[in-house]
Design a protein around this nucleic acid. Structure first.
Length: 243
DNA sequence: AGTCATGTTGACGA
DNA sequence: CTCGTCAACATGAC
């Protein structure tokens, strides 16, 4: 379920809960739910794949990890990791990592690292990449401190669109090509959001899960790349390997 | 039924 | 200390 755009969709669905007071907080995790109970939800934000429920002086971070799900004014059969009960409404988060962070979200998060955020700063991303020349670019794209919100689908799509092989070393990629990749990461992430809303996400994949390269008709390679050994889909003919 | 997957952290041993 | 590997969490599609 969760790459950055999916979290934006979640945020948009529950934004209307901002301003309401939590009558009761409960769930399966080992956190202090009582700290939330009785407080007014001030804002709903996201930072990459993090959903941030903002209260005065603290922030509840919800991370859906790989299998997380949620229900709004509905319940699944299983117990939630977090349930927030409001007057006549409730939010349920299942199989999520839940953490209460001290302080306001603005003091914790660097919004310019979030590919989904208006404050996204491509130059800052490039500067961070320059600091890790020996890293494989497939790993760098999944680094949430650089490309917060980018996940494994966006990784393969951005690399394919920028014509860069996933196992390329960051420091060996020509600077113009690196800028192109950063731009594609941002642009495809925004397309992901539009496509998902329209229900055409998978239809517009050009590399992820594909078998044949639409550009050259040669096979798309599926391999587990980088330190993370995460699956990558790429065309060795169209995507240049910089080493 | 077994395998795999849009994610991340922490333990452990070499 | 650091690196790599594995385990853990947990759900649903095929």
């Amino acid at each position: 379920m969760p790459e950055g755009p999916s979290l934006v969709i979640l945020r948009e669905k529950i934004e209307e809960f901002a301003g309401r007071t939590v009558l009761e907080a409960s769930g399966l995790r080992e956190i202090d739910y009582d700290r939330i109970t009785g407080h007014k939800l001030l804002d709903v934000r996201t930072w990459g794949k993090h959903l941030l429920l903002c209260f005065s002086g603290f922030t509840v971070r919800v991370h859906l990890m790989m299998f997380g799900s949620y229900r709004i004014n509905e319940r699944k059969a299983t117990n939630p990791a977090l349930r927030l009960t409001f007057a006549n409404s409730e939010l349920n988060f299942y199989s999520c990592n839940i953490k209460i962070l001290d302080g306001d979200a603005d003091s914790i998060y660097d919004w310019s690292a979030d590919v989904m955020n208006d404050a996204w700063d491509a130059k800052a991303a490039k500067a961070k990449l320059k600091q890790m020349p020996e890293a494989m670019v497939c790993d760098a794209l999944l680094d949430q401190n650089i490309f917060s919100g980018v996940g494994n689908i966006i990784k393969s799509e951005a690399l394919y669109r920028a014509k860069v092989h996933p196992e390329s070393l960051v420091g060996k990629i020509p600077t113009a090509r690196l800028s192109k990749l950063i731009e594609e990461a941002r642009d495809y992430t925004l397309q992901f959001l539009r496509d998902k809303k329209k229900g055409v996400l998978a239809k517009n994949w050009e590399a992820y899960t594909k078998k044949i390269c639409k550009r050259c008709d040669l096979p798309i390679i599926k391999d587990y790349t980088g330190k993370g050994k995460r699956r990558s889909f790429f065309c060795t003919n169209c995507q240049k390997l910089y080493t």
